[in-house]
Amino acid sequence: MTMLSRVADRLFWLARYLERAEDSARLVHAYTHLVMDIPKGSEPGWDILVRILDAEPHYEEHHRVYSEANVIKFLLADQDNVSSILRSIRAARENVRTTRDVLPSEIWECVNELYLYAQEHAEKCIGRRNRYQFLETVIARCQMINGMVISTLPRGHSYRFIKLGQLLERADMTTRVIDVGAAALLGDERLRSTVDPLIWASLLNSLSAMGAYRREIGPHVEAGAMVDFVLRQSSLPRSVKFCLDGIREELLPLKNNKETLRLVNKARRELSLFDSQVCTREELHIFIDQFQHMLTRIYSSIDRTWFMTDQRLMTAGTEQAAP
């Protein structure tokens, strides 16, 4: 059974938006936690979160200062911010609304409930105390939906495009998490020994990877090792390496996958060549920037090949696929 390009497109974005909501929630959660651990006066600003999501121009249209309340409202509840958690959840719901016929009905119900929850609570959860509750609920519900996908969705095109959307978004968000670390500490040499481990540990926590790190590497969190771990540990589900391997695996059974596979393999190669243990923070930041660019190119290639292809061109003189 084949799948309409439009439906594949919507499933892909359903998964991307859900992943974005979950990962943003993880990021804000970890950052809020981190800020409380750092001695007064040396804590990094809230602007980092906005910068990491490449949302400064939009933020600055509406706010002048990067205060905690403004930034949190912008990231959680802003209806105009395309990457706010509320907007991501709403976009996920719109995508599932028009693809209900290819998904188990529980998934629609669950996404719909998540939307209703977020709509009611996002605005009220700017303060730190309710914020935790809200973020944890969003994370838990996203994970529940993921669980449903894993345990009820037949392994066909639906599953494949959901997986692709999720893994691509996750790879992107994981690189952003690393960038938070790099940006937070760039140019600040004073407190490196005391503050550094705190920051890296909280970022590991945001990826649910602290336990795995301790077992694999040890209890002391150190920048180079941590970055290497979340970039290249192939057994870690939120590592960039894991995501790229997963994307490759989902691409293999698809038709016309040559161009996209080539890009994914290139990204995997560059990842394996990058040595985080010897690079400077500046170099790390540049690498991440370039790598995010690469992910964008992979997305464009997926979009071109399977979603918006002008298939009129493809019919000219070629053998037609049988239904």
């Binding site: 084949t2 799948m3 309409l4 390009s5 439009r6 594949a8 095109h157 495009f161 698809l254 038709k255 016309n256 399977w306 292809t309 298939q311 009129r312 493809m314 019919t315 000219a316 037609q320 696929a321 049988a322 239904p323």
Partner: peptide
């Protein structure tokens, strides 16, 4: 409507992830 198109062979196709399907 946007899922369908008419080819130069005057057949109607739908755009799918496997390419055009008549």
């Amino acid at each position: 409507g946007s899922d369908l198109f008419t080819g130069d062979d005057d057949c109607v196709y739908m755009r799918t992830v496997d390419g055009p399907v008549r």
